[in-house]
Each structure stands twice: as structure tokens, then as C-alpha cells.
Design a protein around this nucleic acid. Sequence first.
DNA 1: GGAATCCCTATACTTGTGTATAGGCACCGC
DNA 2: GCGGTGCCTATACACAAGTATAGGGATTCC
Lengths: 220, 220
Amino acid sequence: MITRNAPPSTQAAATTEPCIYIVDDDQSVRDALSSLFRSVGYKVQLYGATADFMQAKRSDGNSCLVLDIRLPGASGLDLQTHLNREQIPIPVIFMTGHGDIPMSVRAMKAGAIDFLAKPFRDQDMLDAVANALDADRKRRDTDGSMAGIRAAFETLTSREREIMTAVTAGLMNKQVAGNLGLSEITVKIHRASAMKKMGCQTLADLVRMASLLGLDTSKS
Amino acid sequence: MITRNAPPSTQAAATTEPCIYIVDDDQSVRDALSSLFRSVGYKVQLYGATADFMQAKRSDGNSCLVLDIRLPGASGLDLQTHLNREQIPIPVIFMTGHGDIPMSVRAMKAGAIDFLAKPFRDQDMLDAVANALDADRKRRDTDGSMAGIRAAFETLTSREREIMTAVTAGLMNKQVAGNLGLSEITVKIHRASAMKKMGCQTLADLVRMASLLGLDTSKS
DNA sequence: GGAATCCCTATACTTGTGTATAGGCACCGC
DNA sequence: GCGGTGCCTATACACAAGTATAGGGATTCC
């Protein structure tokens, strides 16, 4: 795990109980799932249609989505497509009463965590949700540190970014200076400044961050 | 992409046509698929049972596996489990005449590329195979460079590995020397030797390789 | 026994890097 | 106008890293 040092810690604790979002047009299903999830300590949010879910402002805690396929208006698969397009990374568990294999395969290929055919056993749903929440937690962890690194990188000036890129590609200060038409000392200054802003002490750390940021490593 | 320099190039060209392995107990299905795949330029290998496929020695070119679920003896899912356990990374496309949703979900969760219900359109199968071969190619690319890096790392002496690990974690030569109870010059020698054996010129490259190798970066 | 390999060390020198101090120029916002 | 910031440069020094040369001791394999 890559961690930086000083920068403002924007990572709040937020260790509340996980929240399960349920989208199903059948009231009795919503109620049943709601009581099931509450019984094991999850919070729940209920929606009767995809539109309701999309409009609702969701908290940003550990969560997942339990989604019926067949819904009035936009279907569950439509909602999944929308979430993917908008890069909303909430794990999705599908359930269906009248699904078929192509439907389940499409959902899984689109990244669903699980796909349960009704009727399912409570335990199967709880297992699926546990997996989903776990995946969500893991994603949050990595996303969190990535966000920190990206934020730090944003604070660099364009010159500093150029030089960080070149330096982490393995070029020497003098080479960077030559490529950019600068003097070596200028490179050193920007380099030191970039290191400080990125919150790292060693070149090795900077290289790892550059790697995570996907900076171009092709030496010019 | 991380590439090293000198080391013996064990990567043969192997730019032959892709090979599709077909496992189905129905002769007519095998024949139909065989002619379908041949018609678009793929090689095919046919098997009537999972055991036949497992015993056969497969070439190491670009390939994928088209697998029936219901088979005499070990089922298609069993074979998939076996391949996963043995870390044989061939992409799998399932097909089934009597499958159900849980079966397809299990297969997809276990990493199948696609899952087609019979009867399927030829084009769907060809699309699935194209995706599978593409995934296989990508995996081969990354696996190839990883294998090279790992092989290079294998040639390092234990001391060189220790020192490479410490250096890529960001420690200075003198710190490494202190930690390992060596003199600084010794560290320099091993460090230079490691760089040479790993086929890289800069610390940045070495750090990226260490990263790919999963070397411990926790500074001691 | 001899060759090879690994491990360790030393001296000496070159080059690369980090940092401090000091300054100039351009732009922007108040 | 003035302060802040980004960008550029210079000198000077301390320290880190890379390399060459030259050893010694241990092990293993033939």
C-alpha cells in the first residue's frame, strides 16, 4: 500500500453500519428484505423504481445495491448500465423471478456481484450481500489512497508535472533539463518541490505514485 | 509496459492461427462447431469428455476453450474448477442445453468469459470466441513480460535480492548497509549487480519491477 | 588441487543529487 | 502599487551513488 505523509487528511472515519439499497416494485419483497437485512444490523433504503433510486441522494458509506431485474420504467439492467456509464461503483446484486440465462450472463459480464433467482434462501442473499459489502470496502480502500495521490498531483504546477514524469521515467536531471530546454538547477528545484507536494521522501516512492497515476514512462 | 533489455529472449514469435478447444459429448455439436471455427480460420481440437481434454497436451499458442456444461464423468464446471485450481489460465466459454441461472452465475463468477444457452446463433459464438482469444492475448502479453522479470529475479543471489528489496523501498545505501550489517561499498556492488541482472539502467525501472514482483516496500 | 561463485571489504575518483542563498521576470488579484 | 506565485537562473557546498581496481575467505564441483 502506498501512503503519503503530511497532506490534509480528508479521510473521515465513517465507521457506521453498512447500508443496503433495495430496488423492487413489489412492496412485500421490499418489506421482507428490509426486515432480513435489519435483523443482521444493516441499514436499508427502499425504492419502488429505478428512477427513485437515481434521484435519491445516497450517503457515501459502505453499501451495496439489491436490484430486481423487471421493474416499471427503466429495468434493473438499465440501471446497471447507467451506473457503469456514470462510474458509480456500487456493487450490484440482481434478483429475478422471471429471468433467463442470457440476462444473468449479461448482468454478470457487466460486473454484477451476484444474480439470484427467486425464490432464494435468505442465507444466499445474506452471503451475496456480505460479499458485495466486502468488495465495496476493498474498493473504497484503494480508491481512498488513489484519491489522495491524485489530489496531491493536482496541486503540482504544469512544470512540476512535466519534471515528475520525466524523472520517474528514469531520466537524470541533466537529461530532463536538456529535453525541456532548462538548466539543471531549475529541474532540481521543481523536482524537490514536486517531491514535497506529493508528500514523499524518496525517488522510489515518487516512482510508485507515478506508476499508479499512469504517467508516461516512455523515455524520450 | 515494463521491458527489460539484454536477457536471453525466450519469447518465440509463435504467430500461428489461434486454436479453439472444444469439449462436448455430442458428435454433431463437435462437428458443427469445428466447421464453424475452421471457416473463419481457427484451428480446432475436439474432445468428447473432460478427461480427454485434461490428458491431451495442448500447444501454448493463443487459444480458448468451448465447453459443454453437461458431460459424462466430470462436468464442465468441474473442469473449470480444476483449471482454476491448477492455474491454467485458458479462457472458457460455456454452452448448455439444459442449464439454469445458478449454473450460469456460478460459471461467470468462476471467471468464464461467456455462457451461451443452446441453441445459439453462430455469430454469438464467434463473438464470444473473439473476446476470449483477445483476453487470452492480453494475458499472454502481460504474463510474458512478468515471466521475464521473474526469471531475471531468479538469477539474483539472495544478497542481491535483499538489497534490491531494500533499495527499491527507498532506503539509502548506507541505511541498507546498516540494516544488514554490511559496509556501504558492498551494498553498492550488489546493487549494481542486481541492476545489471535485472536488465535495467535506472532506479526507476528497478522500482517498477520490484512493484510488479510484489517486493515488500515497508521500510524497516 | 584448481576453477567458479558468492560474499565481503578497501581506496580512490567521478558523477549525480539535494539544499541553501540570492536574484530576475511575468502575471494576477486586491 | 504591491504581495503572492510561478518560473527561471546562478554559485557553492554536502552528500549519495556509480565505477574501477585490488584484494581475502568460503563453498562447491570437477
